[in-house]
């Protein structure tokens, strides 16, 4: 069970004056239950890439396999794929449209043809999972705050009970509290339900804190694909492509330059703290 991408190429507006190669020879495999992060500068192809994962964009060349099945095969049921691979777009709250939050979240499962009872059960569960209180269920989505709207929109995808959840910058434009709430809930979903999560983000600190694997995109290609520690070792190269390692990585580098034997792989505050304290203890 996995998503597998082989030799994928994608060209926008092929055959026109605006033709542009957005993705070049992508080869990736996302095993079941992985929590992966995708980072890259604007225009690096991240969003184009993830839209291939549930068949919203069809590759110009190459193949995408879902659980071993070629999704471009003639008899493949694309609708099925879209219910299994849930995609949360950037600013998903712009897509809320129903009269109230609960009805909006019901929209997805209803379209899967599920009985009303099951639809509502799933909607309740999804709203509970994103931590939206019941008093908001019957409110118009437009009465909610930015963070609440975002959660309602994510609940709309969760209600389809996808096996894979892809989120394109789910915290863009939110305040720190809204950001932490959403990321914590996604992490909890991943831990409790074991679903595969793909998180597209600009924030290295967030990525470092949550994911087990980072895919770095640059100009439509995969530049790095490894654990956060390994990827952040390339801090200079990351800077060259408009990204950066988390701030603590730079602290460790600076201390190392000054002759301290600290762990250069530390990417979170806690790891950095432990390493510095260990280093002090060892010497004292």
């Amino acid at each position: 069970m996995s998503i597998k991408i082989e030799h994928l190429n994608y060209i926008y507006s092929q055959g026109t004056a605006y033709e542009k190669q957005a993705l070049t020879d992508i080869n990736l495999e996302l095993p079941d239950g992985q929590f992966a992060g995708v980072i890259g500068h604007t225009g690096s192809g991240k969003s184009t890439l993830i839209q291939h994962l549930n068949g919203l964009i069809k590759a110009t060349e190459g193949t995408v396999y879902y659980n071993g099945e070629n999704i471009y095969a003639e008899n493949y049921v694309m609708k099925d794929l879209r219910s299994r691979v849930g995609l949360v777009f950037q600013y998903p709250e712009y897509q809320l449209f129903e009269v109230d939050v609960f009805t909006d979240v019901c929209f997805g499962p209803k379209n899967l043809g599920l009985p009303k009872e099951e639809v509502e059960k799933r909607a309740y569960e999804a709203l509970r999972q994103v931590g939206l209180k019941e008093k908001y269920f019957k409110k118009s989505p437009f009465e909610l705050s930015g963070g609440q709207k975002r959660r309602a929109a994510i609940a709309g995808i969760l209600a389809m009970q996808p096996e894979v959840l892809i989120l394109d910058e789910p915290t863009a434009g939110l305040d720190p509290r809204g950001r932490d709430d959403i990321l914590e809930q996604i992490a909890r979903l991943h831990a409790e339900r074991g679903i595969t999560v793909v998180l597209v983000s600009h924030s290295m600190e967030d990525i470092a804190k949550y994911v087990e694997r980072i895919i770095v995109m640059e100009k439509g290609r995969v530049r790095f694909d490894d654990t956060p520690k390994k990827v952040f070792e390339h801090d200079r190269e990351l800077e060259q492509i408009g990204l950066a390692a988390p701030q603590v990585t730079y602290v460790m580098r600076e201390l190392k330059n000054r002759g301290m034997d600290v762990d250069l792989c530390a990417t979170t505050i806690d790891e950095a703290k432990q390493s510095i304290l260990r280093c002090m203890a060892g010497r004292g």
Binding site: P176, E205, I269, K273
Partner: peptide, 17 residues
């Protein structure tokens, strides 16, 4: 629940230790 820069946070944690 406001953010603190990572380096400030690390300094604070080390101080607490």
């Amino acid at each position: 629940r406001l953010d603190v820069p990572q380096v400030t946070m690390l300094a604070h944690e080390l101080r607490k230790s």
